[in-house]
Design a binder for these strands. Sequence first.
RNA 1: GCCGGAGUAGCUCAUUGGUAGAGCAAUCGUUUCAUAAGCGAUAGGUAGUGGGUUCGAUUCCCCCCUCCGGCACCA
Length: 473
Amino acid sequence: MAKKFYITTTLPYVNAEPHIGFALEMVQADVLARYWKLQGADIVFNTGTDEHGLKIYQKAVEAGKNPQKYCDEYAAKFENLKKALNLSYTHFIRTTDKHHLEAAQEFWRRCQKNGYIYRKHYKVKYCIGCELKKTESELINNRCPLHPEQQLEIIEEENYFFKFSSFQKKLLKLYDENLEFVVPSFRLKEIRNFVAKGLEDFSISRLKSKMPWGVDVPDDSKHVMYVWFDALVNYISTLGWPNDEKKFKEFWPGIQVAGKDNLRQQSAMWQAMLMAAELPTSKQIMIHGFITSDGKKMSKSLRNVVDPYELVKKYGVDAVRYYLLREIPPFEDGDYSDIRMQEVYDADLANELGNLVSRITNLGEEDGIDGDTIGKTPEKNTKERLDKLIESYQFSEALNYIWALVKQLNKKLDEYAPWKKTKDVRGNFLKQTLNDIYNVGSFLRPFLPETAEKIMNAASGKIRKVAPLFPRI
RNA sequence: GCCGGAGUAGCUCAUUGGUAGAGCAAUCGUUUCAUAAGCGAUAGGUAGUGGGUUCGAUUCCCCCCUCCGGCACCA
C-alpha cells in the first residue's frame, strides 16, 4: 500500500483579500505535497476558508449582505489561488460546509462527554461607546482607547469553557518527547515557555443573541461555538471525520503549515482539543514567518499590500513561486520588493536557467540529437541531498543547491565550448549536458512545476530549440 | 518588566577559537552556442559599543546600545 501523506495549511479568515503571506503558506505546503506525490505517496493536501465569527458577521452586515453570501464571494477569491499559483491541493474545505458543521458538533460532544467542557459565568469588560466586549490586550490603562473618557462596564455572561488547564502536563510531555513537533526549534521553545507558565481555560462559545454567525452548540440553542473551536476541527473534518473512519485513520495525523501568529492555536490549543476528544495529536507543525513589503509591514494605509494575483500576471506563476521559496527564508520573516523581484527574475531565471536551456537545446537541435537516447538518471547524492532539504522544509537551501548545478552547467559549457568543435566530436558532451539539464528539470518539479515540465520535455525526444523559459519583462 | 532571537561587504545571508566568505548589485576584461545571456577578474567589512578569558575571538563570558518576536480569548 502506498504511503499516505497529509498536509494542511491554516484556513485564512475571509475578512480580506488573499495576500502574499498566505500565498507563501500555500506554496510551501504545495512543494511538500508535490514532493511526496512524486515519491509515490497518496496525498491529501487541504486548505480552505474560515468563515464564522464576529468580524465576518459585522463585515457582511456592513456590506448589507447575507453572511453566507458574503463568505461565498470571498471563498471564491481564495479558491482562485489554486490556478494562479498552480497549487495541487486536493481538498478545499469551508467551515460553513455541512459536513464540517456536523463534525464540529461531534467534536464538541466528545470533549464534553470526556468532561472537558463546562459552563461558567464570567465577567467581561464592555465598552458602551463601541458596543463591544474588550479584551485585555485591547485596553490602555484599563480604558478603551477609542473612548477613553468612558468607564468600561462589567457585564456577566455565561459561556462554555474548554478545560485547557487540564492539558499543561500532557502538552509539555508532547513537546519534550518530540523535539521536532514544532519546527523551527525556536518556535517550539516559544510555545513551551507559554504552556509552562500556566494555562487558563478559554471560552469556546458566544451567545447567539449577540453573535449568531457560528456553529450551533449541541443541545443548547442559545449558544454558537466560538470561531476558533469550530475552525480548528477542519483539519480532521476535511478527512471525513467522524464518518469516514477509514480515511481518517489512513491520513491522520498530518503536517500542518501555519504562520507565526498561529503558533498557539495550532501547537497548543488544537493539540489539547485533540487530546480532549481522544484523538491523535498532529504529526508536526511547521511555522513560517511574515512577508514585509519594501521592508515595511504591509498595510492598507501604506498602500504597500502585495497582491499575489498581480504578481503572477506580471511575472508568471513559477517566477512568483521561485521568489517565495528562494528569497523568503522558510522560517523567518522575509521581504518582498519589486526591485528584488526584477533582479531575481533577470539574474536567476532568465539569465542563468532560461538562457542555459536555450543554449543547450539550440546546440542539440543543430546536431539532431535524440533526447531519448540520453541517460536521464539523477546523480544519487544530489538527489538524496535535495530530498533531505525538502523534508526539513529548507526550500531556499534546496533551490540554492539546484542553482549551483545550473551555474556549473553554464561554466562547463563555456569551458568545453562545443560551438568550436565539430559535430562528431561534441556528441557525447551534448548528451551528457542534456542529461544534466533534464535532471535539473526533475529536481525542480516540486518547486516550479511548469518550468520543470518544460525543461524535461526540452531534453526529451528529438531536441528542438525551446522558446525562452522566462522572457524579458 | 520577564523570556527568546538578531546586529558581519550596498542588499540577503554563511562563517560556533587560528590572518573574514557566498549570492545579488557595482566596475573592468573576455567569449559568441544563447533571452545584449555566459565566463573570468577587481573593488568593497577595524563583524553594534566597551570590557574579560585565551598564544590567538566574528566565534566563549560580562556590561551597555539598537532592532525584532512572545508574554492568551485578535482571527
